[in-house]
Computed example of a mutant assay.
Amino acid sequence: MYTTTNEEGILNNYATEPKLYYAEYPSPEQQSRYLFQGAVAALFVTFTLLIALGVS
Protein backbone atom coordinates (compact mmCIF):
# COMPACT_ATOMS: atom_id res chain seq x y z
CA MET A 1 0.00 0.00 0.00
CA TYR A 2 1.30 3.43 -0.91
CA THR A 3 0.73 6.18 1.69
CA THR A 4 1.30 9.92 1.36
CA THR A 5 1.05 12.69 3.91
CA ASN A 6 0.00 16.25 3.05
CA GLU A 7 1.21 19.42 4.79
CA GLU A 8 -1.55 19.14 7.43
CA GLY A 9 -0.47 15.64 8.43
CA ILE A 10 -3.47 13.90 6.83
CA LEU A 11 -2.67 10.45 5.45
CA ASN A 12 -3.84 9.33 2.04
CA ASN A 13 -3.64 5.61 1.23
CA TYR A 14 -3.47 4.23 -2.30
CA ALA A 15 -4.08 0.61 -3.16
CA THR A 16 -1.44 -1.23 -5.14
CA GLU A 17 -2.58 -1.73 -8.72
CA PRO A 18 -2.62 -5.29 -10.07
CA LYS A 19 -0.56 -6.25 -13.09
CA LEU A 20 -2.62 -5.83 -16.26
CA TYR A 21 -2.93 -8.49 -18.93
CA TYR A 22 -4.97 -8.88 -22.10
CA ALA A 23 -7.63 -11.55 -22.42
CA GLU A 24 -7.01 -14.31 -24.92
CA TYR A 25 -9.59 -15.41 -27.47
CA PRO A 26 -11.23 -18.68 -26.32
CA SER A 27 -10.08 -21.89 -27.95
CA PRO A 28 -12.55 -23.99 -29.98
CA GLU A 29 -12.90 -26.35 -26.98
CA GLN A 30 -13.80 -23.45 -24.72
CA GLN A 31 -16.24 -22.09 -27.31
CA SER A 32 -18.06 -25.41 -27.48
CA ARG A 33 -18.15 -25.59 -23.68
CA TYR A 34 -19.62 -22.05 -23.54
CA LEU A 35 -22.24 -23.08 -26.11
CA PHE A 36 -23.17 -26.12 -24.03
CA GLN A 37 -23.38 -24.05 -20.83
CA GLY A 38 -25.60 -21.51 -22.59
CA ALA A 39 -27.93 -24.24 -23.82
CA VAL A 40 -28.19 -25.77 -20.34
CA ALA A 41 -28.87 -22.33 -18.83
CA ALA A 42 -31.60 -21.63 -21.42
CA LEU A 43 -33.24 -24.99 -20.68
CA PHE A 44 -33.07 -24.33 -16.94
CA VAL A 45 -34.69 -20.90 -17.28
CA THR A 46 -37.38 -22.26 -19.60
CA PHE A 47 -38.08 -25.15 -17.26
CA THR A 48 -38.29 -22.81 -14.27
CA LEU A 49 -40.72 -20.49 -16.07
CA LEU A 50 -42.90 -23.40 -17.15
CA ILE A 51 -43.07 -24.68 -13.56
CA ALA A 52 -43.96 -21.18 -12.32
CA LEU A 53 -46.72 -20.90 -14.89
CA GLY A 54 -47.99 -24.38 -14.08
CA VAL A 55 -48.15 -23.71 -10.35
CA SER A 56 -49.91 -20.37 -10.64
Rank of each mutant, 00 (worst) to 15 (best):
S32R: 15
V55C: 05
Y34I: 08
K19G: 06
Q30V: 06
E17V: 05
F47R: 09
L50P: 00
A42S: 09
E17W: 04
A42L: 06
L35M: 13
Q30F: 02
P18I: 03
N6A: 02
F44W: 09
Q30K: 02
Y34W: 12
G9N: 04
T4Y: 02
L20S: 12
Y2T: 08
G9T: 00
E29V: 02
Y2A: 10
Q31R: 11
L49A: 14
A23I: 08
A52R: 03
A39L: 13
V55E: 06
T4K: 04
I51P: 03
A15M: 06
Y21F: 15
L49N: 08
G9M: 06
L53V: 08
F44L: 10
F44Q: 01
Y21G: 08
P28S: 05
I10N: 13
T48H: 11
L50T: 08
G38M: 04
P26K: 06
F44V: 11
S27A: 01
L50D: 01
T4H: 01
N6H: 00
A23M: 11
N6T: 01
E8V: 08
Y14D: 02
Y2E: 12
E8Q: 10
F47C: 14
P18G: 01
L50V: 10
Y22H: 14
Y21Q: 10
R33V: 13
E17Q: 07
A42R: 00
P28A: 07
E17A: 07
F44E: 08
G54N: 04
L11Y: 11
Q31E: 15
E7S: 10
G54R: 02
N6W: 00
S27E: 00
E29W: 02
P18Q: 00
N13C: 09
S32W: 11
S56W: 12
F44M: 09
T46D: 04
A15I: 00
S27D: 01
G9S: 02
N13S: 15
G54V: 02
A15E: 08
P26L: 03
E17R: 00
R33H: 14
I51R: 01
Y25G: 13
Y14C: 04
E24H: 02
E24S: 10
K19C: 01
A23R: 05
Y2C: 07
A15R: 00
K19F: 05
L35N: 14
K19Y: 09
Q37D: 15
Q37W: 13
L50N: 07
E17L: 03
T3Y: 03
V55G: 04
T46N: 08
E7F: 09
L49C: 11
E17N: 06
